[in-house]
Amino acid sequence: MDQKKITQLEQIIDSEYSNTVCIAVQKNGKPLYENYFNGYAANNATHVYSVTKSVFSALIGIAIDKGYIKSIDQTVLEFFPDCLISEGEETIQHVTIRDMLTMTAPYKYDSEPYEAFFMSENWMNFALAQLGGKEKTGEFVYSAIVGTHILSGVLAKAAGGSILDFAAENFFSPLGITVPGNVELRTKEEHIAAMTDKNTSGWAADPQGINPAGWGLFLTPSDMTKIGQLYLDGGKWYGKQVVPAWWVAESTRTQSRWGDLSYGFLWWIIDEKEHIYAAMGDGGNVIYINTRKNMVISIAALFAPDAKDRIGLITEYIEPLFAD
């Protein structure tokens, strides 16, 4: 490694990506670089925001493989038979799990009502009430929090219990990842405090104890790198198939588009030809997988408004430095 170039990289991180807490680079399954910033260390977990979505995608694939979910073409309402539907409301009846995974489900809102969602006594009921409307199914509508929560309800209903327990048994434990318990965020102040506390670990939960599909998971950089390596290896971990290989393949190819951006099953597709894809969350949290170069790059970061794009940092600075 060129120490001068590494020093230059770290200067760029300090000046332009100052909310970064860790960058870890792995190639051919071997660690090449790992450094911490802002007082963080290897044992500190970070709220990875929407990286949670890609982890949840893996859980859906596992649930299908184990028979808890028959198919992603099942309608959402099959899991919510008591959901009240307004007269004349047809759109919601045809929304499938696939639509939720590809962000092509329609919603009644123009702008996602985060505050009302968090203030509601039952997040699931609130989210279901937003699904449908007059828009057609099939158009890309990114649901950061509200709509995505419905997927949590689907898995909770299908597995018949705690999402965290299901994830621990079938995903986290095989990888040696510890997510110790639910993180209760009862007020806005608690929410903000948890996101910036390097001693917080676990997974957020709604008032009914359901872990969100779209956010709320706290992971260490090592955890993030393990997940990236798992996907790079087709869902295998030390020879054991943790996530079905077919699910990894389907999740990481283009399933829908948002302008020039491609999306899989809760994964962003960076370059389909080169098979480069990423889990991405607010603040610049990233698990970046380059299949051709056999690389995994993980970046953990604290929330910052209008955080600078980490994919640019990776492709312009990090990847060229460690690819050869």
Rank of each mutant, 00 (worst) to 15 (best):
N35T: 08
V141R: 15
T52G: 00
L59I: 14
A41D: 05
H47F: 06
N125P: 02
K70I: 00
Y36G: 04
K157F: 12
M124K: 05
S50P: 03
G133L: 04
G161Y: 13
D65H: 15
K30A: 07
K136M: 13
G138F: 10
T104V: 10
A63V: 11
L77P: 11
Q130K: 10
A116G: 00
K70C: 02
I145E: 04
S86Q: 15
E115G: 02
I92S: 03
E135W: 06
Y68L: 03
G133I: 11
I72P: 12
D73S: 03
C83W: 08
F166V: 02
L59E: 07
G67V: 12
P106Y: 04
I85P: 12
N38R: 09
A127F: 11
E87V: 13
H47T: 05
F80H: 09
S173K: 14
L131G: 02
I64F: 06
E135T: 08
N35A: 06
A45D: 00
E87Q: 07
S162Q: 14
Y109W: 14
Y107H: 13
A42G: 01
S57M: 05
I69Q: 06
I97M: 05
S50E: 01
I69W: 13
G132N: 05
K70L: 03
S54R: 02
D165M: 09
F166Q: 09
K157Y: 11
Y40A: 01
T96I: 07
F166W: 12
V154F: 10
S173R: 10
N44P: 00
N122P: 06
R98Y: 15
I85R: 11
S120L: 09
A158M: 14
